[in-house]
Each structure stands twice: as C-alpha cells, then as structure tokens.
Amino acid sequence: MFDYPVVLEAQPEGGFVVTFPDIPEAITQGEDEDEALLYAVEALESAMLFYINDRAPLPVASAANGRPTVRPSALECAKLGVYQAMTEQGIKKAELARRLGWHMPQVDRLFDLSHASRFDQIEAAARALGRHIEIRVA
C-alpha cells in the first residue's frame, strides 16, 4: 500500500542518490545501494510528515516498473493507513479525538511518525473510522 518506487543514481564521486518520483520532497544518499535504500526509509517517513502536518492527502505510489521500492516501517504504515482513512472520509483530528474520547495531544502523537505509539491505539483509531488493520508476514 505504501511501497514507493525509488530511483537510485550512482554519483561520479561515489555513492548513490535516492529520489522518489511520487514524493519530490524525499531525497537522500548513501555510500552504497544498501545504505542508500536504508536511508530512503527515513527520507520517506520524514517526507510523509510534511503531508500529515499540512493535512494533505498522501501521495499515491506509482507502479514500480522494475525499480526498487521503499516502504515505511510497519508501525508507520499502520499510522499512515489510519491517516489516509481519516482524510478520505473528511474527518478532522478533533472529530477523531471525540470519537475516541481522547485529548488532542494523543491524536497528534498518533500521527507523529517518530513517536512509538502503542499498536492498540492505532487499532482503536482505525475502528473509530470503520476500518481495521491487517498484518501479514510475506
């Protein structure tokens, strides 16, 4: 769902620059391909925070077409899924807080990708939006 294709560009001075065709705000680099892709996860999560803070819809991932893809960690994917459901339904944070019986700082932390939210809170937010979270190991 949040698998975004990346472009890895070898640099003349060494290393690789990683860009995201669907998320121009995300750019990073690494000494080799593995390191660059590892840093790409952090760049992706940081860029997603821009969308959340601006209360904007999340970018849709385009087809990989043979390119490598990067996705946020599982916890962040769950948070992004709840955020996406909220924006698709036109629900504001205040309404989600009301539905959950939470204070606004709790909802703000839920969408802070650097905050280690409890998974049961993410599940509760999904249920409040009429959704559920599925986890699978592939």
Rank of each mutant, 00 (worst) to 15 (best):
D54V: 02
V70Y: 01
Y39L: 15
P12K: 05
D112W: 04
E42H: 10
F111Y: 13
Y83D: 02
F50L: 07
H103Y: 10
M86N: 10
E45F: 09
R67C: 07
S62K: 08
G66N: 03
H132K: 14
L110Q: 12
R55P: 01
F119M: 15
G15D: 12
A126R: 03
A124M: 09
A56P: 00
F50G: 06
E13F: 13
P68A: 08
E13I: 10
A125Y: 08
A40H: 06
R67W: 02
L38V: 10
P5R: 03
A64L: 13
I23M: 10
A116W: 00
Q89K: 15
T28M: 02
R131Q: 15
H115F: 15
G15E: 06
I133C: 06
R127W: 11
G15P: 09
I52L: 10
Y39H: 09
K92F: 07
L100W: 07
E88F: 09
Y83R: 05
A56E: 14
Q84S: 14
P21A: 13
F20Y: 14
I135L: 13
E123A: 13
V6C: 04
P57H: 00
L75W: 01
D3A: 13
V18Y: 01
F119L: 14
F20C: 12
Q11C: 05
L100F: 08
A85P: 01
R118A: 13
D108T: 11
A78Y: 08
P72K: 09
D22M: 02
A43P: 00
Q29D: 07
F119K: 10
R55I: 02
P24M: 03
C77D: 05
G90V: 05
L100V: 04
V70N: 10
I91T: 14
A61L: 06
Q84W: 09
N53I: 00
L58A: 05
E13H: 14
